[in-house]
């Protein structure tokens, strides 16, 4: 398999330049939501939580739609296809590039969240749940990236995005129901038990599997059309 790392990174930089401003905006909004969470007021806390989740999911949709779906729809992709790349280069630039761009927004927000939980009056027992939730959003982002690349269709990507949002709520609900998780959530120290590690492990592994499978699937295609 021939890949051109120099071209992949150039394409990534180009994509990043196109969304940079918005990603910084999401980081700002993320910081604001975390601040709201730390205010000692029930309404402010819930507003903060909802806003934080909205920001993380919004940023993920932004990355996927701007760098893949809209680029295809507005025919900038025809311009990109003329560059010295093959399908694998393109796929990797979108997959890794999209993930890195998202991580550049996700990581500072999640780190801030964990630190704020750690140093504020919020119970530190929330930390595992916060990490599990943030990783679920990262996994959903990866899946959405893969769907946009594999199906090459706006409608399919939108449907999957909607389904992922529904699944997210279901996920929160079922993880919250697990005794190994919810019995420690209000405790003063974070409890990383086997269940927590198990869920995080499955999340990370799924991300990796999605990346490998999508790259493999696309690399068998000789042509863009």
């Amino acid at each position: 398999m021939n890949i051109n790392p120099a071209m992949i990174s150039r394409l990534f930089i180009k994509d990043w330049q196109l969304i940079q401003r918005y990603m910084l905006m999401y980081i700002g909004l993320g910081a604001l939501s975390i601040f709201l969470m730390s205010v000692k007021n029930g309404t402010a806390y819930y507003t903060g939580v909802v806003m934080l989740i909205t920001v993380l999911i919004g940023a993920s949709a932004h990355v996927v739609f701007v760098s893949i779906v809209i680029e295809r729809k507005e025919h900038q992709m025809s311009f990109i296809m003329g560059l010295p790349i093959n399908v694998t280069d393109y796929t990797l630039s979108k997959l890794l590039g999209g993930l890195v761009a998202y991580l550049l927004c996700w990581t500072p927000i999640v780190l801030t969240l964990l630190l704020v939980i750690g140093f504020s009056d919020m119970p530190n027992g929330m930390i595992p749940m916060a990490l599990i939730t943030a990783l679920e959003i990262l996994l959903a982002t990866t899946l959405l990236l893969c769907v946009a690349i594999v199906f090459e269709q706006e409608a399919v990507t939108i449907v999957v995005m909607v389904a992922l949002n529904l699944l997210f709520n279901l996920f929160l609900f079922s993880v919250g129901q697990m005794p190994e998780i919810n019995m420690h959530i209000t405790s003063d120290t974070p409890v990383f038990n086997a269940t927590v590690f198990g869920i995080i492990g499955v999340e990370l592994l799924s991300i990796l599997l999605l990346l490998v499978a999508t790259t493999y699937y696309k690399s068998r295609k000789a042509c863009f059309f």
Partner: peptide, 8 residues
């Protein structure tokens, strides 16, 4: 059909 990036 090729298009450049409108925002740039």
């Amino acid at each position: 059909e090729m298009r450049l990036y409108g925002a740039k």
